[in-house]
Amino acid sequence: MPSRIHISMSQFLWFAYIVPCFALFSCVSLSLMKDFEKSTRTHCNVTNFLPSISASISEYEPQRFIWRLCFALDSIPRYIIAYLQLNHLLNRHHIEYPEHFALVQIASSTFHFLELTFLLLLTYVSSREIKWIHEYSFISFMICSLAHMLLTVSTDYLWPRIMHIPLNEQEKSVRSKRLTWFTLNIVSISISFYFYYRHVTFCEPYIYSMFCLFEYIIVITNIAYHSVIMNEWDRQGVQIQFLIK
Rank of each mutant, 00 (worst) to 15 (best):
V174M: 06
Y17S: 09
H6Y: 10
G237P: 09
R68D: 05
F195Q: 04
I207S: 10
F12K: 07
E96D: 10
K172Q: 11
Y60K: 11
T40N: 10
P205L: 09
M1Y: 02
F118P: 03
R198F: 08
L146S: 04
I106M: 06
S188N: 03
S137C: 04
L151M: 04
Q105G: 02
D156I: 05
F113L: 14
T47K: 13
T123L: 01
M142N: 01
E232L: 12
I191L: 07
F202V: 13
L119M: 06
F182Q: 01
S126W: 00
S26L: 02
F101R: 03
F36K: 06
M230D: 10
S188V: 03
S10R: 15
I106Q: 06
M210S: 12
V174A: 07
H226C: 14
L150A: 08
E59A: 07
Y124C: 00
F12N: 05
H43M: 07
Q105M: 08
I189M: 11
S8G: 09
F113T: 10
R4L: 13
I143N: 02
L243H: 15
I165D: 15
Q85C: 05
H134L: 00
E129I: 04
V153K: 01
F12M: 07
F214W: 13
T42R: 07
P20E: 12
T117Y: 14
H6D: 06
M149D: 00
Q11P: 05
S190L: 11
Q105H: 06
L89N: 07
F214L: 13
L50F: 13
Y124W: 02
P62Q: 11
T155G: 01
H94E: 15
F111K: 00
S227P: 13
Q241S: 14
H226T: 12
F138E: 00
K34N: 11
W67H: 12
N231H: 13
V28L: 07
Y17Q: 10
Y83V: 01
S10G: 15
Q241G: 08
H148T: 06
W159T: 04
V187K: 02
M142G: 00
Q63D: 04
K172R: 09
R41V: 11
I240A: 10
L146A: 02
S39A: 07
L213Y: 07
N222H: 13
Y157A: 01
M1A: 03
D35V: 08
N185V: 09
Q85R: 04
Y194G: 11
C70R: 07
F182H: 02
S127V: 08
Y60G: 10
F25W: 12
F101V: 02
N185I: 10
H100I: 02
I130N: 03
L243N: 15
I220H: 05
L13D: 03
V228D: 09
D35E: 14
R68K: 08
D35C: 09
A147N: 01
S127A: 09
E115Q: 14
T110D: 09
V125S: 06
M142T: 01
T110Y: 14
S109Q: 03
Y79L: 09
S58N: 09
V228S: 13
I7F: 14
I244D: 12
S227W: 15
Q11G: 09
V153A: 03
E61W: 14
V187R: 02
Y206A: 04
T201N: 11
S29T: 12
T47L: 14
I81D: 06
K131I: 00
S29R: 06
Q63C: 07
